[in-house]
Design a binder for these strands. Structure first.
Lengths: 236, 236
DNA sequence: AAAATAATGAATGTCGAGAATATGAAGCTG
DNA sequence: CAGCTTCATATTCTCGACATTCATTATTTT
């Protein structure tokens, strides 16, 4: 009987694999906010034992995607508007600084990466004019890559690491919401404006545009109907 | 609001307790940078089974205090000057923003907390004039409380959470170094300058002083010894 | 002798079962 | 009927044992 699902060269443990799967499922929304994560149930779903599952949970709890209360198990972290404002604030701070450093230090390779990401983003944005409801995965991917490319030359692994964590947390909020006003925005113009400022090495302008960009996105988030009872946000 | 909220001690699991102990031991230096963390060895030391130990490890790995390589166990994250520069950069960004927000929004209670922390810090700094080698725990505690109090009114739980993590990572570096020039600094003046600027609601000045404060601390860090290899060879 | 391969020992990662704890229902007291 | 206690059930957490992988040495081959 083989323990490992990935017999090939990938040196990944079951705990790592469970972590990756659960993480994606939580961000995408397969596991709803507030949902209880019972070990016995998850054992059957992911077909692994309790030990690697619990290890994955602990990591997710550290990420802020899962709440862990001693002897009372784990739940998917609930969504609430207050926390998102907070999250967006912290994210903006980090992203601006990383962008500023990136603009100061970026080389040709950085420019090339930004240009390439902007090219794809442009096409995705153009196709988006009438799209309502969920954004296509290709758009999500292009958007993530564009923003990642912009800050990729900041030279600070920790800024990147923190940025990535906050980005993922915010993405869960975005995916859990309906962007009703997506049509009223000119995302293409916003994106190209940021890219142009970055390539022109105008850090102040790029930072201002990024801040506005994040602010607009945040302002337009409208919660979907909660798919789970506990998902109803309550102020505490 | 504290990041590690254990308001009811009876609700502590062994995994939580192992996490807390290991975390402290790593930050303080009891577990040396680069040291391998073998489960069997730790089982005897902390007198618990492998499962809660592994869960604690995964959390610590997520914090950046432990490195985890699939099927090759865990090691205490090594120290290196490059990473510290990086860490200090990210920390400064966060701390400045949190301080600015705190100064804008702080109420009487915040002022009182800052004044109280500054009072204790002043006494600790005064006693420090001729101290060499390790700083006393009482000083560490007062210093941590002063800086925590300054940013405590920023209103962003996530900024605080990130700040706390970075603070702890930096503290490990500070504890692992000899502050030979501790005497050449006027810590009392630095601290009181920051506090005065904060209470005067001069955010720009306070941020500038904090940045200089962190920069000076970073510049003075001198590694104690190349303890890495010794730590590895220390089998039991 | 050097390189490649096989064998050995040690450490890691995983599982199922059992102990500890929480949840909820039933019964008792006032 | 409210409030408290007791008991039963379900879930979490922990442990010891075992399968798997890694690292090192011994053996064979060119």
């Amino acid at each position: 009987m083989t323990y490992y699902a990935f017999d090939d060269a990938s040196r990944q443990t079951l705990a790592d694999s469970a972590y990756a799967q659960l993480r994606r499922d939580i961000i995408v929304g397969t596991r709803a906010p507030g949902e209880r994560l019972r070990i016995e149930k998850l054992k059957k779903i992911y077909e692994i034992g309790p030990t690697p599952l619990r290890e994955a949970m602990q990591k997710l709890a550290q990420d802020g995607l899962v709440n862990s209360e001693g002897n009372r198990g784990f739940t998917v972290a609930p969504l609430n508007a207050n926390e998102f404002q907070d999250l967006n604030l912290a994210r903006t701070v980090i992203e601006k600084e990383a962008l500023r450093l990136s603009i100061e230090q970026g080389d040709n390779l950085w420019e090339a990466r930004v240009v390439a990401a902007a090219y794809i983003m442009g096409k995705e944005d153009a196709m988006l004019s009438e799209a309502l409801g969920d954004l296509p995965d290709s758009w999500e991917k292009a958007n993530a890559e564009l923003h990642a490319s912009l800050v990729s030359a900041c030279g600070s692994d920790w800024l990147i690491k923190i940025r990535t964590g906050l980005h993922d947390l915010c993405e869960r909020y975005r995916r859990a919401s309906v962007n009703q006003k997506i049509g009223s925005r000119n995302l293409q113009a916003e994106h190209s404006g940021i890219v142009e400022a970055a390539l022109a090495r105008d850090a102040d302008k790029a930072c201002a545009l990024i801040e506005a960009h994040f602010g607009l996105t945040a302002a337009m988030l409208v919660p979907k109907e909660p798919t789970h009872k506990e998902a109803v946000s309550q102020t505490e």
